[in-house]
Simulated scan of single mutants.
Amino acid sequence: MEYSQRVFDGLADVEAADPDVVAAHLFVRSFGDGMKRSQTKLNWYPVMRHLAQLGGFDSEFRLFSRGDVSRRTDMIVLESVILWESASLAGRAIQELWLLRAGQMALTSIDPLEATLSALRRDRPQSRD
Protein backbone atom coordinates (compact mmCIF):
# COMPACT_ATOMS: atom_id res chain seq x y z
CA MET A 1 0.00 0.00 0.00
CA GLU A 2 1.25 3.47 -0.84
CA TYR A 3 1.06 5.35 2.45
CA SER A 4 0.98 8.85 0.97
CA GLN A 5 -2.12 8.34 -1.17
CA ARG A 6 -5.35 10.14 -0.43
CA VAL A 7 -8.22 7.85 0.61
CA PHE A 8 -11.05 10.32 1.26
CA ASP A 9 -12.25 13.41 -0.60
CA GLY A 10 -11.84 16.14 2.00
CA LEU A 11 -12.66 16.54 5.68
CA ALA A 12 -16.43 16.27 5.12
CA ASP A 13 -15.92 12.90 3.41
CA VAL A 14 -13.80 11.69 6.36
CA GLU A 15 -16.56 12.78 8.76
CA ALA A 16 -19.21 10.96 6.69
CA ALA A 17 -17.21 7.72 6.42
CA ASP A 18 -17.63 4.65 8.60
CA PRO A 19 -15.59 5.38 11.76
CA ASP A 20 -14.08 1.87 11.66
CA VAL A 21 -12.80 2.46 8.13
CA VAL A 22 -11.32 5.83 9.09
CA ALA A 23 -9.73 4.32 12.22
CA ALA A 24 -8.26 1.40 10.25
CA HIS A 25 -6.73 3.64 7.58
CA LEU A 26 -5.41 6.03 10.22
CA PHE A 27 -3.90 3.19 12.29
CA VAL A 28 -2.08 1.64 9.35
CA ARG A 29 -0.92 5.05 8.09
CA SER A 30 0.26 6.21 11.52
CA PHE A 31 1.92 3.10 12.90
CA GLY A 32 2.90 1.50 9.59
CA ASP A 33 4.24 4.61 7.90
CA GLY A 34 7.96 3.93 7.92
CA MET A 35 8.15 3.30 11.64
CA LYS A 36 11.14 1.36 12.84
CA ARG A 37 10.28 -2.08 14.19
CA SER A 38 11.48 -1.04 17.64
CA GLN A 39 9.40 2.17 17.64
CA THR A 40 6.13 1.50 19.39
CA LYS A 41 4.89 4.95 20.37
CA LEU A 42 3.77 8.13 18.66
CA ASN A 43 2.88 11.65 19.66
CA TRP A 44 -0.52 13.02 18.64
CA TYR A 45 0.66 15.48 15.99
CA PRO A 46 1.82 12.88 13.41
CA VAL A 47 -1.55 11.12 13.73
CA MET A 48 -3.40 14.39 13.04
CA ARG A 49 -1.10 15.04 10.07
CA HIS A 50 -1.81 11.54 8.73
CA LEU A 51 -5.55 12.15 8.97
CA ALA A 52 -5.12 15.31 6.89
CA GLN A 53 -3.15 13.30 4.30
CA LEU A 54 -5.84 10.61 4.19
CA GLY A 55 -8.50 13.24 3.58
CA GLY A 56 -6.49 15.45 1.27
CA PHE A 57 -7.02 18.58 3.37
CA ASP A 58 -4.58 20.98 5.00
CA SER A 59 -3.70 20.36 8.61
CA GLU A 60 -3.97 23.60 10.53
CA PHE A 61 -2.24 22.39 13.68
CA ARG A 62 -1.64 25.37 15.96
CA LEU A 63 -1.01 25.58 19.66
CA PHE A 64 -3.17 28.66 20.13
CA SER A 65 -6.38 29.85 18.47
CA ARG A 66 -7.23 26.52 16.91
CA GLY A 67 -9.68 26.72 14.05
CA ASP A 68 -12.69 24.68 13.02
CA VAL A 69 -10.65 22.20 10.96
CA SER A 70 -8.37 21.52 13.94
CA ARG A 71 -11.30 20.90 16.28
CA ARG A 72 -12.99 18.58 13.78
CA THR A 73 -9.71 16.75 13.14
CA ASP A 74 -9.10 16.36 16.88
CA MET A 75 -12.52 14.74 17.34
CA ILE A 76 -11.95 12.25 14.52
CA VAL A 77 -8.48 11.35 15.80
CA LEU A 78 -9.77 10.87 19.34
CA GLU A 79 -12.64 8.70 18.11
CA SER A 80 -10.16 6.60 16.12
CA VAL A 81 -7.86 6.19 19.11
CA ILE A 82 -10.80 5.09 21.28
CA LEU A 83 -11.65 2.48 18.64
CA TRP A 84 -7.99 1.33 18.56
CA GLU A 85 -8.09 0.97 22.33
CA SER A 86 -11.33 -1.03 22.27
CA ALA A 87 -9.65 -3.49 19.88
CA SER A 88 -6.39 -3.52 21.91
CA LEU A 89 -4.43 -2.27 18.89
CA ALA A 90 -2.99 0.81 20.59
CA GLY A 91 -3.48 2.76 23.78
CA ARG A 92 -3.02 6.21 25.29
CA ALA A 93 -0.40 6.86 27.93
CA ILE A 94 -0.06 10.51 28.94
CA GLN A 95 0.78 12.37 25.68
CA GLU A 96 1.74 9.31 23.64
CA LEU A 97 0.01 6.58 21.70
CA TRP A 98 1.50 3.13 22.22
CA LEU A 99 1.32 0.28 19.74
CA LEU A 100 0.12 -2.89 21.50
CA ARG A 101 0.78 -6.54 20.61
CA ALA A 102 -2.49 -6.97 18.70
CA GLY A 103 -1.60 -3.86 16.69
CA GLN A 104 1.84 -5.23 15.90
CA MET A 105 0.28 -8.46 14.68
CA ALA A 106 -2.19 -6.55 12.48
CA LEU A 107 0.60 -4.46 10.95
CA THR A 108 2.73 -7.51 10.15
CA SER A 109 -0.13 -9.45 8.55
CA ILE A 110 -0.40 -9.95 4.80
CA ASP A 111 -3.07 -7.23 4.57
CA PRO A 112 -2.59 -4.78 7.47
CA LEU A 113 -5.64 -2.68 6.58
CA GLU A 114 -7.99 -5.67 6.48
CA ALA A 115 -6.51 -7.16 9.67
CA THR A 116 -6.95 -3.83 11.45
CA LEU A 117 -10.52 -3.40 10.21
CA SER A 118 -11.37 -6.95 11.32
CA ALA A 119 -9.95 -6.27 14.78
CA LEU A 120 -11.95 -3.05 15.07
CA ARG A 121 -15.20 -4.78 14.10
CA ARG A 122 -14.73 -7.91 16.22
CA ASP A 123 -17.36 -8.45 18.93
CA ARG A 124 -19.48 -5.42 18.12
CA PRO A 125 -22.06 -4.55 15.46
CA GLN A 126 -20.82 -2.95 12.28
CA SER A 127 -21.65 0.67 11.49
CA ARG A 128 -24.27 1.23 8.83
CA ASP A 129 -23.82 3.80 6.08
Rank of each mutant, 00 (worst) to 15 (best):
Y3H: 08
Y3K: 10
S4E: 12
Q5N: 14
R6A: 06
R6P: 12
R6H: 11
R6V: 11
F8R: 01
F8P: 00
G10E: 04
G10M: 13
G10I: 03
L11P: 06
L11D: 03
A12I: 03
A12T: 15
A12L: 15
D13K: 04
V14T: 05
V14Y: 03
V14P: 00
A16W: 05
D18G: 14
P19Q: 04
P19H: 12
D20G: 07
V21A: 10
A23Q: 07
A24N: 10
A24K: 11
A24M: 02
H25M: 13
H25T: 09
F27H: 02
S30V: 02
G32V: 11
D33V: 10
G34F: 12
M35A: 10
K36R: 12
R37H: 12
R37N: 08
R37I: 09
S38G: 13
S38E: 14
S38I: 12
Q39V: 13
T40Y: 03
T40K: 01
K41F: 09
N43H: 14
Y45K: 11
P46H: 03
V47C: 09
M48L: 15
R49C: 00
R49V: 13
L51Q: 05
L51Y: 01
Q53V: 12
Q53D: 12
G56P: 08
G56D: 01
S59P: 01
S59T: 02
E60S: 08
L63K: 10
L63V: 09
F64D: 12
S65D: 13
R66E: 04
G67F: 02
D68I: 03
D68A: 08
R71F: 01
T73C: 11
D74Q: 11
D74T: 10
I76Q: 03
V77D: 01
S80I: 00
S80D: 07
V81C: 06
V81S: 07
I82H: 05
L83F: 12
L83D: 05
W84P: 02
W84C: 08
W84H: 11
E85K: 13
S86D: 15
A90W: 03
G91E: 15
G91P: 00
R92I: 05
R92D: 00
A93Q: 08
I94R: 09
I94L: 13
Q95W: 12
W98L: 13
W98Q: 08
L99E: 06
L99G: 05
L99T: 03
R101K: 14
A102T: 05
G103R: 02
G103V: 09
G103C: 02
Q104L: 08
M105K: 08
A106I: 08
T108A: 11
T108W: 10
S109R: 09
S109H: 14
I110S: 08
I110C: 09
D111L: 01
L113H: 08
E114R: 13
T116W: 11
L117E: 08
S118N: 09
S118H: 08
S118R: 15
S118F: 03
A119M: 03
L120C: 04
L120K: 05
R122E: 10
R124K: 15
P125W: 13
P125Q: 15
R128M: 11
R128S: 14
D129Q: 06
